[in-house]
Nucleic acid binder design. Structure first.
Ligand SMILES: NC(=O)c1ccc[n+]([C@@H]2O[C@H](COP(=O)([O-])OP(=O)(O)OC[C@H]3O[C@@H](n4cnc5c(N)ncnc54)[C@H](O)[C@@H]3O)[C@@H](O)[C@H]2O)c1
Ligand SMILES: NC(=O)c1ccc[n+]([C@@H]2O[C@H](COP(=O)([O-])OP(=O)(O)OC[C@H]3O[C@@H](n4cnc5c(N)ncnc54)[C@H](O)[C@@H]3O)[C@@H](O)[C@H]2O)c1
Lengths: 206, 206
DNA sequence: GAAATATTGTTAATTTAATCACAGTTTAGG
DNA sequence: CCTAAACTGTGATTAAATTAACAATATTTC
């Protein structure tokens, strides 16, 4: 099990590496990758050490190989299915955005309680009533949920998610959620991010 | 200057505290606050120690007072003005969402290059052409930008942001941006978050 | 009003993450 | 073929963040 920060950085490296590949770059040095990611060459090498890949000495890392090795670590062979819960402004933006982005992570369903949204199709993904959550999650083997419901229903919905058999949640509501210990949860709070930026802008001024 | 993680947690505590206030709760213990936030009572007390607030012993923290003290630390007295750059799906969602949420952080302008979007008003906020960035930033005293432009224009736009005098950036594009050292930048990469969730779901399975 | 209980604030210890420092390769140039 | 230069991989070290441990203090109970 890799450190969380390392997992994040590997995902980020991979995106840069894919970009490199498109530009026809076949090899990359640790210090080049570092420069692209606000960190140091040592950190990059250490991260890559974690996944047990070694480069051709003096030529840098083979871009294509490194992409594959990162894929072996991060991706599940058969891919994982994802659902978006709450098809409001944010849920719609995310659904539209993700379609076709990652071959190993497919958004294959959305859920809502608003009857005007149910059965609507966004970017090829159908919206189901939340009452059918468990049924669809089981039938379609969905293991990850992206939560974009209003704050006041967040905690109730999260219980339903866990009951339905979801194993990972990416929570965008501003409510910290309690889930069973075998469910992995990542929370992102936009207001917190913005307040953090504001704090550092403020303190830099003085 | 507080540790970054502490700043984040303080912002999160504050939101819970505001919620408590609404529910008529006047005092809160460190372990209660901890429970709401996936962390420990010691961590809460240490964070609060950082900002130099002390409770009434044995009664817990005075909710209202603690909110004010956190405000003194996080907020700027006159508030800070914010602009959203790139009024696509995500930019629109964020703009709509933020309006009225935080009295000390006001989104007061959006920018785009798409002529069909310019001059449109979203939730009371007007969209300006990107070419007027510097002019408006100076006139309206905007210090923070939220970046939601497409990846391929991200790095160019970030240069313009810095030139215009922006001091803090919240970057939602998937491109790591280079900014001047006196500009604070926070980057959030949704794909990375989702891949991280997927990784931990995958490894938990084995 | 003494003892038991609950909670804080803080020092010390521990754990985790990042950085330093350098030996070990490979390649290039003479 | 020898030396210098350029990078990598990793043990050792340092720094940062978290957790444990506990004295100090207020409150309740009897
Ligand atoms: N919009 C943003 O940019 C933004 C930013 C940060 C955080 N958030 C958070 O994301 C969440 C959604 O924000 P939004 O702007 O998209 O809100 P929204 O009101 O546009 O969308 C919410 C959607 O959830 C649906 N919904 C309500 N109750 C539900 C339930 N029990 N189960 C399933 N669906 C349900 C609603 O019908 C609606 O379609 C909120 O919790 C908000 O705090 C949004
Ligand atoms: N939609 C999401 O949920 C989501 C999730 C993660 C990351 N992102 C990132 O956010 C960014 C925007 O995503 P989106 O889905 O809103 O895209 P979008 O295409 O809907 O919106 C992009 C907007 O930016 C405008 N634009 C283009 N070039 C510009 C420039 N030079 N200056 C100002 N505006 C410009 C476009 O006219 C458009 O309005 C992308 O970089 C994407 O990677 C989006």
């Amino acid at each position: 099990m890799l450190p969380e920060r390392t997992v994040e950085r590997l995902s980020e490296y991979r995106r840069s590496l894919l970009q490199c590949l498109e530009e026809g770059k076949t090899h990359i040095f640790s210090h080049e990758l570092a420069e692209l990611h606000h960190n140091t060459a040592v950190q990059v090498r250490r991260d890559i050490m974690f996944i047990g890949y070694t480069s051709m000495q003096r030529k840098g890392y083979d871009v294509r190989e490194l992409i594959n090795v990162i894929g072996d670590i991060l991706d599940s062979e058969q891919g994982l299915n994802v659902a978006v819960i709450g098809v409001g402004n944010l849920g719609r933006a995310i659904t539209t955005y993700f379609i076709g982005k990652r071959s190993k992570l497919n958004i294959i369903a959305t859920f809502d309680v608003d009857t005007t949204k149910i059965d609507r199709v966004i970017s090829g993904v159908k919206c189901y009533p939340l009452s059918r959550l468990k049924e669809i999650v089981e039938k379609e083997d969905i293991s990850i949920a992206i939560m974009t419901v209003p704050a006041d229903s967040a905690s109730e919905v999260s219980t339903q998610l866990v009951d339905s058999g979801i194993k990972g949640v990416l929570n965008f509501t501003t409510v910290p959620l309690q889930v069973a210990p075998d469910v992995y949860m990542d929370e992102y709070d936009m207001i917190t991010s913005l307040e953090k930026v504001a704090y550092f802008v403020k303190t830099a001024r003085t």
